[in-house]
Design a protein around this nucleic acid. Sequence first.
DNA 1: TTAGGGTTAG
Length: 626
Amino acid sequence: MLSSLSSVPHLLPPRENSQSSTPQSSKPDLLHNFNTPFELKQVHAHLIKTNTPLSALPLTRVSFVCALTPSFAYAQQILERVEKPEIVFWNSCLKTFAEGDSPFDTILLFYKLRQFDVFPDTFTCSFVLKACAQLLDTFNGRIVHGYVEKLGLQSNLFLQNMIVHLYALCGAIGDARLLFEKMSDRDVVTWNIMINQLVKRRDVEEAYHLFSLMPERSLRSWTSMISGFVQCGKPKEAIQLFMKMEEEGLRPNEVTAVAVLAACADLGDLDLGRRIHEYSNQSGFRRNVHISNTLIDMYLKCGCLEDARRLFDEIEERTIVSWSAMISGLAMHGQAEEALKLFSKMIQLEIKPNGVTFVALLHACSHMGMIDQGREFFASMTRDYGLIPRIEHYGCMVDLFSRAGLLQEAHEFIMNMPIKPNGVVWGALLGGCKVHKNIELAEEAIRHLSELDPLNDGYYVVLSNIYAEAECWEGTAKVRKLMKERGVKKTPGWSSITVDGMLHEFVAGDESHPEAEEIFQLWEKLLQKIKLKGYVPKTSVVLLDIDETEKEKFLYRHSEKLALTFGLMKTSSGTPIRILKNLRVCEDCHAAFKLISEIVDREIVVRDRNRFHCFKDGSCSCRDYW
DNA sequence: TTAGGGTTAG
């Protein structure tokens, strides 16, 4: 019987070690006190050597053997060698497998157990359910659920929660919800599970509905909901909820802080971001790499490149997320060379890039017109790192070619893609067509976009601008008609600026601001000055079918111009002005801002939906290539 | 011995 154990050679101590370990393993107390897999091997060697059966060990020790057993074959042998293995032994093995990376073995062993005359208990079921969740295996999950009912364990709250979690995780949200509704006792975990799963399915409204119904909420509940809002693109709601949480006297932990910082990054809320940074330092979160990474991202997205870089340099253990975030941030700020340098440094340190790193690198190349370098990165990701390009990478390549004016090459690239191009890919070509004035390819792009993303107003606007620049008024009328037919409305542009901790939002054409008069007066003065420096209003960016003077008036009420003028009114000279815009910065505003930065001798930082524009001394960090 | 929340791009 013992010989069967020696058929598991990898569990025996290595020969060179057996010499040195023999004196120790022959000590009888090790038989009662082994605590690690290595000591288990020593005990094993001893049992074999002395021809002692495993059953000679005390029962608690046998269950310990099971708990330390990382191999399915070995687990089976142990269980077969104990006369009537109690459920605790099985559970110990199942736990090891379920908590390790052997979910398949957990399920296999569960079915083996049924061959013996042993009944699963709540723990058995919980480990198997965990394995099913790991494998997203509803087939076996439903069988275990059946056992739970058959064994009369269905009222156990732990198991109910695990089953609800499993169903929701596997996409059977209807089954999960049904069970949730049927449960007579729900605890805070039950609610949290449902909320998290709804967030994963992007149903944040329903998640919030459940959140508001909760009889009691833990810090985790608040964190789940705050993070849920962030994940679903609702950072404002996330911050509102965070404020409410603080009002209720709860202090954020590391996970909450990460979610709030991510919301600050999305909103460009530097004040709150800095407050959370300070709080994190005071609370000892400094060494948490999630916190550091999110802080870096927050500073990058709030336009504070230097703060981000300082933090990045300070991190002791950088992860690929830290590197990718920093590279992407440098690219967003127009520092492509620095981004590439950082990448080389990363490779020197033998850190393996991932798909996100390459998105960042390709962005850096496309924003700076580095075509050959971009091509090389695209080839390298598969050749050197075994990464399969995803749709985002193809999108970046089309963007790279299109911006550089290689429109035919971009088109051919799309036609030869091994995956179906999406709206982003055709949208990138359309963007290039605008810069390089190619109506024919723009019309082809819009044909595809009408099918792929028919309600996205941005594409129609770009096409209309292309027609307007070519003075093809028939074309612009056609686009207007198309938008009307499809019920597509132009997203209103808005820009925001924070002055003395207060966020001020401006919508294009908005004349309702309490200080509108002063804003318009200052704008008029600035306008006179920039006109002297050669500014000519670019009325072709105005979509409306109105005369030139009216168009100019619209142009002068663009949200970023209102925000800038307000900023100049309210901040002291010398301080940089930071503006956030929901859409891409308009061409006319871009030209005007360059001149204004020179006239007022101020740094103007605009974050648009794509990147940062840092206007200084009459030029922009994007070098007009955007 | 068993359950729930986090970062980079888009």
